[in-house]
Simulated assay, not measured.
Amino acid sequence: MDRALINAFVHQQDIGNRVNGSFTSKALENVVNEVLEKFPGVKLDKEKVKNRMKYIKKGFAACYDIFKNISGIAWNEDLSMWEAHPDVWDDLIKKHPQAAAWRNKPIPNYHNLCLLYGADRATLEEAETAREMRERIRSEQEESRANTIEEIDHMVLNDEVRLEGYDTPPNAEGRKRAKRKVTLVEEVTSVKKSFQIAADAIAKVAAEMVKIQPATDTVKSQEKSPVSKSEIWKLLEELELNAVELHKAYIFLIKNPEMLDGILSCPSSELSERRDLLFEMMK
């Protein structure tokens, strides 16, 4: 039933019933009907379908996040398992103890789950990176303000400037010197304020880019691909990619038809050159 459920969601995604990463109400209705065709008599509705997929996605995400960038491990499509030399497994489990659960355990429907949620995991990583950048900028702003206050305190302690209640210097030269010192404090404060404004603007643009990115990806995914998805998969298999590279490249090409057209139009017949071209595009 899980396989039928996942296949039904992939079908709804392929026909455009997923908008901005979310399946439409019509898509959920179609999924229920598709599963019931294969399993008549089962009590099933939209809410049960959504809850089951949340559970499946949670398990997939835990697995995907561990294996996505690991070298030395290959995906066995026939067994639906990750395979590697025992030493590679041992090293991986030291870094990620939870990986031990999949050392001898199949991961059903992994390929289709990558199609459904692989791009979501990548988007989540980008959003997290942007969030960290905003936190760094905010921290730098606070440090900048603290430094300004410390500089002014230092100048006051050294009698370089008085911020209030200071006596009028006895001569014109003294007045000029005091004025010059006050002006310096104002300039320092003004410059740092300008940096703070620029940093705030950068953070705002970064936040907007994170909001816009999923919508942009959706537009790209709706462009017509020059070949079918099964043909894309076969093309990538011919390039002799490992399992992780294969999954990432597949998701990349179905979302970027213009890049796929570039691969198909490549005049070179050498597989190594086509593979290098693909990796360069994916950068």
Rank of each mutant, 00 (worst) to 15 (best):
L5N: 03
L5W: 04
I6N: 02
N7Q: 13
N7R: 10
A8M: 09
V10G: 00
Q12Y: 01
D14H: 09
N17Q: 11
G21W: 10
A27T: 02
N30S: 13
V31G: 05
V32W: 08
E34M: 11
K38H: 12
F39Y: 14
V42W: 05
D45Y: 09
E47P: 02
K48Q: 09
K48S: 05
Y55L: 15
G59P: 01
A61R: 04
Y64A: 10
N69W: 03
G72Y: 03
W75C: 05
E77A: 15
L79W: 00
S80A: 11
E83W: 00
E83V: 05
H85C: 03
P86S: 08
W89R: 12
W89S: 01
D90W: 06
Q98G: 09
A99K: 12
N104V: 04
N104K: 14
K105H: 12
I107S: 07
L116D: 00
G118I: 02
A119R: 15
A122Y: 07
A122Q: 10
L124I: 06
L124Y: 00
E128M: 12
T129C: 13
A130G: 11
R131A: 14
E132N: 09
M133H: 11
R134Q: 12
R134C: 15
E135I: 10
R136L: 15
R138V: 07
S139R: 11
E143M: 12
S144G: 13
D153A: 04
M155L: 07
D159R: 14
V161W: 02
E164H: 15
N171G: 01
A172I: 12
G174F: 02
G174K: 09
K176L: 05
K179F: 11
R180Q: 10
R180S: 11
K181C: 15
T183F: 05
V185A: 10
E186V: 07
V188R: 13
V188F: 07
S190T: 08
S190R: 15
V191Q: 14
K193E: 12
D200G: 06
A201T: 11
I202P: 01
A207T: 07
M209L: 14
K211G: 01
A215G: 07
A215V: 13
A215E: 04
K220E: 08
S221F: 03
E223D: 14
P226T: 05
S230P: 06
S230Y: 03
E231K: 12
I232M: 06
I232N: 01
I232Q: 03
K234W: 01
K234D: 10
K234Q: 12
L235K: 01
L236P: 03
L236E: 03
E237G: 08
V244E: 14
H247M: 06
A249Y: 04
I251E: 06
K255I: 01
N256R: 11
L260V: 07
D261K: 15
D261Y: 11
L264N: 08
P267S: 11
S272H: 08
R274Q: 09
L277H: 05
M281R: 07
M282S: 12
M282F: 09
K283P: 04
